[in-house]
Design a protein around this nucleic acid. Structure first.
Length: 443
RNA sequence: GGCAGAUUACCCGAGUGGCCAAAGGGGGCUGACUGUAAAUCAGCUGGCAUCGCCUUCAUAGGUUCGAAUCCUAUAUCUGCCA
């Protein structure tokens, strides 16, 4: 299992101006719901405790919603507590009930592959050295050997159906046409079992997760209370929302993934840079390790000189560096400024051009291609018609020069370093097209 | 099981034989403005070899010079009656 922290993890620290980690979590708006606050604050201020947060393999990568959990885990670790990163090799095979509809089951092979991906991702955000090192677990390790009979006798007996059907996710489904399968109905037992298992094995006494997981978090708290007679804790982080009511963490309807293959670092950086003024302070609190003072200064900058967008730049740089590293982030910023700056790309030397465009989508075309063909090859438009439409609208650029004639042939002299074209659609959709020296091929 | 009604482009929804690639709204895209923002205004929003042609109005057939519109069968959904 690949377990490797990101280099930036070592440099992170909490804000010492807070009385304790609980106060900081509250200030950052990371506590939406929790078990007894007084007890929890006491526990978090006392001896190091073990806590866990689970991630189900429902996709090949984690997304920004998960990043909230990862950073919350890291904050608790920085406060001296011991994190347990759990990847749901078994729960991913069952499916957490969504309020709307039944999930389709993924194959065991797919889930196993995704487990590996997620373990590597989770590892990057935790520290595996020091006095309170993180550890990674997979709930398949303790659920796979369990027989159905033992599961029903030892776990199922502690759960009342009346309680189970009152959980939001379940009751929403029972009241909908979709109904709910027995498989998904059982999900909360599995997550409860995880907490119990980790409690027994590692004295894990706190589970964190999104507030939408509250029903599952309390399933574990209740189970431990019944089975072991001990009170343990749970913290539910809020659902991050945009001030304009749109969904956070989406760009043009697509989720923002932390895997660079699914969401390019360029797109990732742009996503953060475009954070609304009204949301940027809240994002800084949740997604960065900046101190209260730094964040308050940036908040003041937003209201005094919004056009400079200092807070957005700081946010984008910070989060992009955290997820993709500072080297990649520097390249992305260079690409962004080459495009949004004065925009003369013909003067760039080849090495600079390459690094600047490294994060952009790429395509290839043949020599003698028309503007329309180049636009389609870039992937910026889906069809020739769309390409013509874009050109007609005045939104098509080659090497940052607006093009008007759809059928114009790209001359060899326009190629940057004999092969490249920087193609742009609208203000900020960019791609690189490499023009081949051969004339065969293509589609 | 019986009766009635629905099924239209990304979504909602108009259209009941030709003037329908299909009203309107939402969403999206582009342009102007701007702070790579918000708001606002304007245009675009099936495909292609773009003055024209092709495919599309649940699916498969049929009537007709001509069908999203009529008929038949199938599938799915919604009401009402058993």
């Amino acid at each position: 299992m690949p377990v490797e922290s990101s280099p930036s993890v070592k440099a992170q620290h909490n804000d010492a101006s807070f009385a304790n980690i609980w106060a900081e979590l509250k200030w950052r708006g990371l506590v939406h719901i929790s078990t007894d606050e007084v007890e929890l604050e006491k526990a978090l201020s006392g001896e190091p405790l073990s806590y866990y947060c689970g991630f189900d393999p429902t996709a090949p990568s984690l997304h920004l919603g998960h990043l909230v959990q990862l950073l919350t885990m890291r904050r608790l670790q920085l406060a001296g507590h011991r994190p347990i990163g759990l990847v749901g090799g078994s729960t991913g095979l069952i499916g957490d009930p969504r309020p709307t509809s039944e999930r389709t089951l993924n194959t065991k092979e797919t889930v196993a592959e995704w487990v590996g991906f997620l373990q590597a991702q989770v590892s990057r955000y935790l520290d595996f050295d020091g006095t309170n090192p993180a550890q990674m677990v997979n709930n398949l390790d303790w659920t796979a050997p369990l027989t159905a009979i033992d599961f029903l006798r030892e776990i199922g007996k502690h759960f009342r159906v009346g309680t189970m059907i009152k959980k939001d996710a379940v009751s929403a489904r029972l009241n909908s046409d979709a109904g709910i399968s027995y498989t998904e109905f059982s999900y909360q037992l599995l997550q409860g079992l995880d907490f119990l298992e980790l409690f027994r094995k590692y004295d894990c006494t706190l589970q964190t997760g999104g507030s939408d997981q509250w029903g599952n978090l309390t399933a574990g708290v209740d189970l431990i209370h019944r089975a072991e007679g001990r009170s343990v804790h749970a913290i539910g982080t809020p659902l991050i929302t945009n001030s304009d009511g749109s969904k956070f963490g989406k760009s043009e309807g697509n989720a923002i993934w932390i895997d660079e293959k699914l969401t390019s670092p360029y797109e990732f950086y742009q996503f953060w840079l475009n954070t609304a003024d009204a949301d940027v302070v809240e994002r800084l609190k949740v997604f960065t390790f900046m101190s209260r003072e730094e964040i308050e200064d940036l908040g003041a900058a937003v209201s005094e000189r919004p056009h400079l967008r200092e807070a957005q730049r700081a946010l984008a740089y910070d989060v992009c560096s955290l997820v993709h590293g500072t080297d990649v982030t520097d390249k992305v910023i260079a690409a962004s400024s080459a495009v949004f700056g004065r925009g003369d790309v013909t003067g760039l030397d080849e090495a600079t051009l390459k690094s600047v465009t490294a994060e952009l989508p790429r395509g290839s075309a043949q020599r003698g291609a028309t503007v329309v063909e180049v636009l389609v090859a870039s992937g910026l438009v889906p069809s020739n018609s769309a390409a013509r439409r874009t050109i007609g609208e005045g939104g098509a650029y080659v090497n940052n020069v607006k093009v008007a004639d759809a059928d114009a042939v790209i001359d060899d002299t326009e190629l940057l370093h004999g092969r490249y074209l920087l193609v742009r659609r609208g203000k900020r959709n960019l791609a690189v097209v490499e023009v081949g020296m051969e004339t065969a091929g293509g589609r």
